[in-house]
Write a protein that binds this DNA or RNA. Structure first.
Lengths: 358, 358
DNA sequence: AGTTCTTACCAAAGCGCTTTGAATGTTGAG
DNA sequence: CTCAACATTCAAAGCGCTTTGGTAAGAACT
């Protein structure tokens, strides 16, 4: 079997291109890659010919020769097929990809099943399939961080990991401050019973949000009430169910902090099904990752929201990673600001909470 | 610069492994790849040693030598940064990935900007970076299909393209029949003014759904009313706005068909803000891709829905593609069934539509 | 005893590229 | 006119793997 399964020669290769020009491979390669030791006349001849025949160097060969794969790995974890697949991911990738493409990188996507984690990362390193990677959805104590440091592959974390003490590169939003601010805002409006419908709190971002919420309450001398704190997957159903339970309390909250716009839709549904109006009977603030397919209204936001674009986070993470690959060294750490958008879903605390109207 | 930017030798390579065993590269390679011309004793020695040192063949080298990259390309298109990034994608990929990993394939993800399409595909082919690819979100007349056929790269379409006459591989849901069935179901319940809040109709799936809707109406002798047909991005806001307009009609619909659960949430919000109850005052059926992060209720679905798991579609597409790469030949075409789940959002047409209650 | 088959291994070529080190022709200084 | 310096170009080695086309040793058959 002299010719491989496929004739690999469908597209012209360097050797053929060189022959067709009566030049050596060396010269053609140098001309294409912008090395100085090529005369300008030859270079333009080469470039023209390459353009004409649509020559693209074979990535695998190039990667093998240079030792760089020009690939970035994105590993997304999936505990089991019933747990939600992070919807954040699509937007993050879109942002990162803009940056990658400028620098000639491509994305390798890998879905790790539970327990598979370590193997996936070690394999990527050993097989040399990526030059660096992005670590998504860090937990409070994220074992993948020391793992990657040991392996020695450049990486940037989207988020942080509170219980990891070593220094690493990350791009994160100041979730703590953001939720503290939102809680303060509600307090200033006279709310004192403020509920939190959080994401899963083993995730670092959710843990930080809760800390922000609690420290704001404590700053006002309010004792956090466990009955007002929920934690779960950020689904519409979870927002609905938590709110339903909250509204059945003897002392229901007058304000709710929601971790995601999807959850917030559930909150609204529960509130409205009780005949409550958002912004007057009950106030709602949500975190909003500014997902492209789930916009919080148009120009006038439906929800008062802490907005931080995941897409921009993706781009910044990509920048840091590429920089880290090119110039290894100290960690690149980026904190992103959240915008605080005042929408129609918040207002002063009602003097006499109007509940169980229905 | 004799040693490349990075010492590539962090992980052991075949040569070193062979030396350490006192064997030739050939034998070790054969032992690892399960060729018969190796004695069982040697093979087990080799496997043990490989396991011990954590040997993983370098993908790039292997790809170069075999002519197969063991990569599948997923190109997702993005017209501009304001258009929504397909949320379907995450689930589809999760399904496909399960199949890929069994066969040793990895995913290369590429986001094509507008106008960039052709270049992205041609580049992938010329650079030899993938063995095949999945075509997402086909339009009614999808130019990428003839393009890929011309390029000669194996591909499977997720969906179909009505205006393309050539034969190609695909995995699709019978959208037409599905929406026809839903419309018939509503008719049987006595509804005659049935609205459609569809996706963007240059997308093939949306176009097919509309055809199903229309042919059901015509089968009942009902003339389709343009005032009852909406088309747009499948956002919550679109569902809300369309429903708001529908409910202001002189002859408002008594039932609504929605293209996505996200849209359906908007429909519900608009209906409920008018004081209408789903299932009694107005019926709603939605298509549901069974996205993991957006479940339609738990055991008892909120919406009556046409459910078809995108994740399963992903897996089937992956199967077809791998099969197509291994044994090129006639097209692999798969039609998936939708489940029709009866939820609480549908009921008999109200005899005297109860509208403008508020 | 010689011949053929098998079995178990190996050296070397090749995948398409980059990069080293050397060779050629051209120019300028001595 | 010679020699060094420079500008261009090239042949060949090497990246880590697979695969071809062997060889050597023993078993099996004449």
């Amino acid at each position: 079997m002299k010719s491989k399964r496929f004739d690999t020669c469908c597209a012209m290769n360097l050797k053929q291109l060189a022959e067709s020009l009566g030049l050596s491979q060396t010269t053609v390669s140098r001309a294409l890659n912008g090395y100085p030791e090529v005369s300008e006349t030859t270079r333009s001849r080469v470039l023209a010919a390459a353009e004409r025949v649509g020559y693209r160097p074979n990535t695998r060969a190039k990667a093998l020769a240079t030792g760089r794969s020009m690939m970035i790995g994105h590993v997304i974890h999936q505990s089991d097929r019933h747990e939600m697949l992070n919807p954040i991911f699509a937007d993050f990738i879109a942002g990162a990809s803009e940056e990658y493409s400028v620098h000639g990188y491509d994305i390798i996507l890998s879905i790790a099943q539970d327990g598979d984690d370590e193997r996936v990362y070690r394999d990527m390193a050993a097989k040399g399939s990526v030059d660096g990677l992005i670590l998504h959805s860090p937990k409070r104590d994220e074992p993948r961080i020391p793992l990657l440091q040991e392996i020695g592959l450049p990486f940037v974390v989207h988020g942080r990991s509170s219980d990891v003490t070593s220094t690493y590169s990350f791009v994160d939003v100041d979730n703590r401050r953001s939720f503290q601010r939102a809680t303060d805002f509600l307090s200033d409006l006279g709310h004192s019973r403020i509920a939190l419908i959080n994401g899963l709190e083993h995730m670092d971002f959710a843990h930080r949000r809760r800390r922000g919420y609690i420290s704001a309450l404590e700053g006002r001398g309010i004792r956090p009430d466990p009955a007002l704190m929920f934690s779960g997957e950020m689904t519409e159903a979870h927002g609905f169910e938590a709110t339903r339970q909250l509204l059945e309390l003897v002392h229901p909250p007058t304000a709710i902090l929601s971790a995601s716009p999807i959850t917030a839709f559930g909150v609204r549904r529960a509130a409205e099904s009780r005949g409550l109006t958002l912004g007057s009977d009950i106030s709602v603030i949500t975190h909003d990752d500014d997902l492209s397919y789930f916009r919080n209204g148009g120009d006038a936001p439906i929800f008062t929201a802490l907005r931080s674009s995941v897409r921009i986070a993706g781009r910044r993470a990509a920048e840091s990673l590429i920089d880290l690959i090119d110039r290894p060294g100290e960690a690149r750490q980026t904190m992103l600001e959240t915008d605080f958008l005042i929408g129609a879903s918040t207002g002063p605390a009602p003097s006499a909470p109007r509940l169980r109207k229905a």
